[in-house]
């Protein structure tokens, strides 16, 4: 019997791997996307749209989308509107608390310029306009299915 290291090395270089290493990175959030929503100073329209996403009509849990109460449990940080001056450090702190890998989605409804542009890391999407619950839902499902690649 050959020495174990030589035996192992011979097996490693002589046999093919049973499983191929995937060439494309896998989406770590498939069927399990935890979302933390932060109101950065919006009028409550987007907050109410997110609230109506909890309607049984959308059934977001079926897609593995869950809303969490802390950024430490979240995969996706949704920022509603450009942050006001006072909310800017709060948003940055929330981003700091996000565990890797994470993504950020900025949603702004049709409104006057009231916020400050900050360089958001890991930005997976930027939605603007009079958004409704259905459009936000489609975006979240797209991210949950594979749009968020880290």
């Amino acid at each position: 019997m050959l020495l174990w290291p030589i035996y192992g090395l011979s097996k490693r270089y002589s046999k093919r791997y049973k499983f191929d290493i995937p060439s494309k990175p896998r989406n770590p959030f498939r069927r399990s996307l935890h979302v933390f929503v932060i109101d950065a100073g919006s009028d409550v329209e987007l907050l109410l749209e997110f609230y109506s996403l909890m309607s049984p009509k959308y059934n977001i849990h079926r897609y593995g989308i869950f809303f969490v109460n802390t950024p430490r449990h979240a995969d996706l940080l949704v920022i509603l509107s450009k942050p006001t001056e006072k909310m800017l450090p709060i948003v940055k702190e929330a981003i700091n608390h996000m565990p890797e890998p994470f993504g950020v989605l900025l949603i702004e409804n049709e409104t006057f310029e009231n916020g400050i542009d900050i360089g958001l890391p890991n930005l997976v999407g930027r939605l603007k306009g009079n958004l409704e619950a259905e459009e936000i839902f489609k975006k979240l499902v797209e991210i949950a299915k594979g749009g968020l690649i880290c």
């Binding site: 932060i38 109101d39 100073g41 709060i90």
Partner: peptide, 10 residues
Amino acid sequence: GPSAGALFES
């Protein structure tokens, strides 16, 4: 607050 899970707004 201002960003706590228990609260609806900031």
